[in-house]
Design a binder for these strands. Structure first.
Length: 748
DNA sequence: GAGACGTTTCTTTTT
DNA sequence: GAAACGTCTC
């Protein structure tokens, strides 16, 4: 009996189809990782393909590690020469070797979101862009979107036409690129973009990798963006052995540039592509699967498929609504406690999923009080913490003297009496001489007007030079310790914030551990540990990579992070309109945004194997104010027969019994959300109850001819008419003019 | 140049 | 409610 006999017919078909383009539409829990690993095994063992010629791309490092492990088990040996990695790490590996062809140094630095923002601030200051009008964040978002689509600054300008805003973005984009290059740095999007450019302009490099990667597999294909698509198209265009696995129903990264067309039109681009659907689900019970199918069927733009299972219907899905988010957290935590006792479940069988990272805090408190081990995935990345970034900036400065951002970050950390004025002088001098900030520091005595700061600058430069010299002789860990000791960093932390100091120092310790782990992993693969290698690994880890299934803790994370995982018991918290789906998507003009949100819900439901619990709260604190939310519309898409609600129906307490002043808070909140999403208008005065108005007030229930009943959340005077915002029960929040809307107040 | 204090903005999701 | 930002004082 061969290992392939354990596969079902469809899975087997996918494994055996090795030549030419192949699209596997794999529903949630249909065993796609199994297919991929068996396919790799089949290629090596039955087809005699050299493992060296196989490339497998996954979404996270964690998935890559698991795949390698599983292939290891089936194949025996040779699996270490398969390339299993994420898009980003594959690109870094290629660029470290060839990026000099594009005029960068191969020791380039990778900038994270934080670095990007600092750089963008510099750019805006330099170009005198008003960041009140053009926010750094939105500029970066626009640039990132452009890079995902492989659009260069010049092309962006051409596309802008007469649009002033776009022309401005093009200008910023160009300068941003210039500064990245000057710093010998790449941002995340660059990693993909530059690799594509490398392949486009260097035929010999492309040919080298085409020859190497004769068999390519891409997991989570529905989440690839245009740059990633182009990358694999180029790589696979010679041998055409491209196998992509994805599920259009699980596409949840549109905001990051994922192009769902990549999967929906795969067959158009690769005309001879074979398509295989995997629809048998091995993960969830019948009820859970029915609920998932029911929810996702509300989406219009999707490839028709229906998951089925041989499993029993299982327990009904539990739903509970609570007064507050605290009650919700209490319920979930005590239920977990209860089930570990009554059903003898272990903590690592539970996951709590939510829409936004902010929701994790309440749970964290409760888990601590209940003394239940837990792990929060996501939120503030470990490597984004201030103390870690400081130390990494030292390492980066040692590694890449052109990384101005890193140098400027640490020039006065710990305090050396070097202030903004001196930094600006150095900066100006560097710009004038067209040298890096650090080079300017080395010649600080030539900087005009530097005055009394000179000795401080010189001693900082000497410090870095000292570390550089040591970097040549010491091993990595010694170097890190030397830095921490020399700058007396732990004392510095105690100085600046007494209270948090200890946890920050623990983080510093953790950084040492991470470095030690890196060195160890190098020994396993016989690579030489380098500073560059460490910094690279650090730049590309996602928090989810730290999830360890063998440790016994409850996992808390966002729905996005949960993709690809499964748990026997799943809690989906915060099932409320306004939170999930978010206000952004409810009020968006584009209905596709709500569909993406629904896919996220589908992802959440399908994480559960045996037991799914949905919860919501009537009120919760958001941004420091109390918000009142109705039940999530997604809940109502689940057939009531699948739910155990305690009462047999979806109970919905209307917002009528809310104290008046809270209604105002909500109204204000709603207005702000509206103003933020739409055209920015000066905030107008809120009408106070009792004054002349359209015949109803904030907090009243009204009826609209088309939209039905809803709650008035704000009324503002807009010139000749009143502008009314109503949260309708059926269609969500709408803003309209009272004169046209003809709203009828419902008397209670 | 540094620290204290008040004000404003933000949050959807992440490699 | 926190973090980032701006302003003021020493």
């Amino acid at each position: 009996m061969s290992i392939y006999d354990s596969l079902n017919e469809k899975q087997k078909e996918a494994v055996l189809h090795t030549e030419g383009p192949l699209l596997i539409l794999a529903g949630a829990g249909s065993g796609k990782t199994r297919v991929l690993t068996h396919r790799i095994a089949y290629l090596i063992e039955e087809k005699g393909i050299n493992p060296w010629n196989i490339l497998a791309i996954t979404f996270t490092n964690k998935a890559a590690g698991e795949m390698r492990e599983r292939v290891d088990k089936i194949v025996g040996f040779g699996s270490e020469s398969i390339w299993v990695s994420t898009f980003h790490s594959a690109c870094v590996r290629i660029l470290r070797r060839f990026i000099d062809r594009l005029g960068y140094d191969t020791s380039f630095t990778i900038y994270d979101a934080d670095d990007q923002k600092s750089l963008m601030k510099d750019v805006c200051r330099y170009l005198q862009v008003d960041t009140k009008i053009y926010k750094e964040r939105s500029l970066l978002a626009a640039i990132s979107a452009a890079k995902d689509e492989l659009i260069t600054p010049k092309e962006y300008l051409l596309n802008a036409g007469g649009d002033f805003g776009k022309k401005k973005i093009a200008e910023v984009y160009e300068e941003y690129e210039k500064q990245l290059r000057a710093n010998n740095a790449l941002d995340f999007d660059d990693l993909l973009l530059r690799t594509v450019q490398l392949f486009q302009t260097q035929p010999d490099v492309l040919d080298y990798y085409q020859e190497r990667f004769r068999y390519i597999m891409v997991d989570e294909y529905q989440d690839t963006n245009t740059a990633q698509f182009e990358l694999i198209r180029l790589l696979s265009s010679k041998y055409r052995n491209l196998c992509v696995v994805g599920d259009d129903d699980q596409s949840i990264y549109k905001f990051r540039g994922a192009n769902i067309k990549n999967i929906l039109s795969f067959e158009d681009v690769f005309q001879d592509a074979k398509v295989i659907k995997l629809e048998q689900n091995y993960r969830s019970t019948g009820n859970i699967l029915d609920a998932a199918n029911a929810v996702i069927s509300h989406n219009v733009g999707r490839k028709e498929k229906k998951l089925w299972t041989e499993k029993d219907a299982g327990e009904k899905i539990t739903f509970r609504q609570f007064d507050t988010a605290y009650d919700e957290a209490d319920y979930i935590v005590s239920t977990i406690k209860g089930k570990t006792q009554s059903q003898n479940a272990s903590y690592n069988q539970f996951a709590v999923l939510y829409r936004t990272n902010a929701q994790s805090r309440l749970f964290e408190e409760r888990f601590v009080t209940a003394n239940i081990p837990y792990k929060i995935i996501g939120g503030v990345n470990f490597y984004a913490r201030r103390e870690i970034k400081d130390l990494l900036a030292y390492l980066r400065t040692i590694e890449n003297g052109r990384d101005d951002l890193a140098v400027r970050r640490i020039i006065n950390v710990p305090k050396r009496g070097i202030g903004q004025t001196s930094i600006n002088r150095v900066q100006e001098y560097a710009a004038e001489k067209e040298i890096s900030f650090y080079e300017a520091l080395l010649a600080a005595d030539l900087i005009p007007g530097i005055g009394r700061s000179l000795p401080k600058l010189e001693s900082f430069a000497a410090l870095i030079e000292h570390f550089r010299a040591e970097a040549g002789t010491m091993d990595l860990l010694e170097l890190l310790n030397e830095i921490i000791d020399t700058i007396e960093y732990e004392d510095y932390l105690r100085d600046i914030d007494g209270e948090d100091a200890e946890s920050r120092i623990e983080n510093v310790d953790e950084l040492r551990n991470k470095m030690a782990a890196y060195i160890e992993s190098c020994e396993e693969t016989d690579e030489k540990p380098t500073l560059g290698g460490f910094l690279e690994e650090v730049a590309l880890v996602a928090d989810i990579d730290n999830l360890d299934e063998t440790s016994d803790y409850v996992v808390l994370m966002t729905l996005h992070s949960a993709k690809g995982l499964e748990f026997p018991y799943v809690f989906l918290a915060g099932m409320e309109d306004g939170l999930f789906p978010s206000y952004m998507t409810i009020t968006a003009d584009d209905p596709m945004e709500l569909e993406e949100e629904r896919r996220l819900c589908y992802v959440g439901i399908t994480r559960a194997m045996d037991d799914l619990t949905l919860t919501s709260a009537r009120r919760r604190m958001v941004h420091g104010t109390t918000q009142y939310n109705n039940l999530s519309r997604f809940l109502k898409e689940i057939p009531i027969t699948l739910l155990n609600t305690g009462t047999g129906r979806l109970e919905e307490k209307k917002n009528m019994d809310i104290p008046k002043n809270d209604v105002y808070a909500k109204a204000k909140e709603a207005f702000r959300t509206q103003a933020f999403g739409g055209v920015t208008k000066p905030v107008q005065q809120f009408k106070v109850a009792g004054q002349k108005g359209p015949g109803y007030d904030v907090g009243d229930r009204v009826r609209h001819m088309k939209f039905g009943e809803g709650l008035v959340t704000s009324i503002t005077e807009g010139g000749r008419d009143y502008e009314v915002t109503v949260d309708f029960d059926q269609v969500g929040t709408k803003r309209m003019f009272a004169g046209f809307a003809k709203l009828q107040k419902i008397e209670e």
